[in-house]
């Protein structure tokens, strides 16, 4: 059994390897950089507590994504209602600006990001894990604790929603060329 100090060393090593990816995953789920930092930190704390209880982790990356995913979904479930009041005062002034700040780059990425955020959580998470983070069906199923067939069907439906929203907004024209 590794000592507490050894576990601590592992966690810091994992932080150096995976924190950027984990942070970006949470940002895409929440569109809130402050919360993303907090949840990133909490992800590694949870990993530490898990390993301290003499439990081993075979695939740290998938394990960390699963932990981050659970924390993020928990955050959305528990805290999104309290944001309502904030939104009341922020709606016009900040919501668009925050997207521009987070996504540095072409307008097309902003559109995709914005539409991704507007999807329901299950669609958003499966699209991000499969299409942005590049996890396999099997890995995505393991992170979300879904069956592989559920990953496939939810991804199919989610992508359909996202595509139709982008088409409605005229992001892609009928000849197949991007409008940007």
């Amino acid at each position: 059994m590794p000592s507490e100090d050894t576990v601590q060393k592992y966690i810091i090593e994992w932080y150096d390897m995976y924190s950027m990816a984990i942070y970006k995953y949470i940002v895409k789920m929440l569109n809130d950089v402050q919360q993303a930092e907090d949840i990133t930190q909490e992800t590694f704390i949870r990993a530490y507590k898990y390993m301290k209880n003499e439990r081993s982790v075979n695939n740290p990356k998938t394990f960390l994504y699963r932990t981050a995913h659970n924390l993020t979904v928990d955050h959305i479930r528990k805290h999104s209602p309290i944001q309502l009041f904030k939104d009341v005062f922020f709606e016009r002034e900040d919501s668009r600006a925050s997207i521009e700040l987070i996504v540095e780059g072409r307008e097309e990425s902003e559109h995709v990001f914005e539409d991704l955020l507007s999807l329901k959580t299950t669609y958003r998470q499966v699209i991000i894990l499969r299409k942005v983070e590049g996890f396999s069906i099997k890995e995505t199923a393991s992170i979300l604790r879904w069956s592989e067939s559920k990953v496939k069907s939810t991804l199919f439906r989610g992508l359909g929603k996202l595509e139709s929203r982008l088409s409605e907004e005229g992001v892609y024209d009928k000849t197949g060329r991007k409008e940007f």
Binding site: V103, E104, E108, V132
Partner: peptide
């Protein structure tokens, strides 16, 4: 575009 989203964050 989806695949490149990470590089924009």
């Amino acid at each position: 575009t989806l695949g490149n989203l990470n590089t924009k964050i």
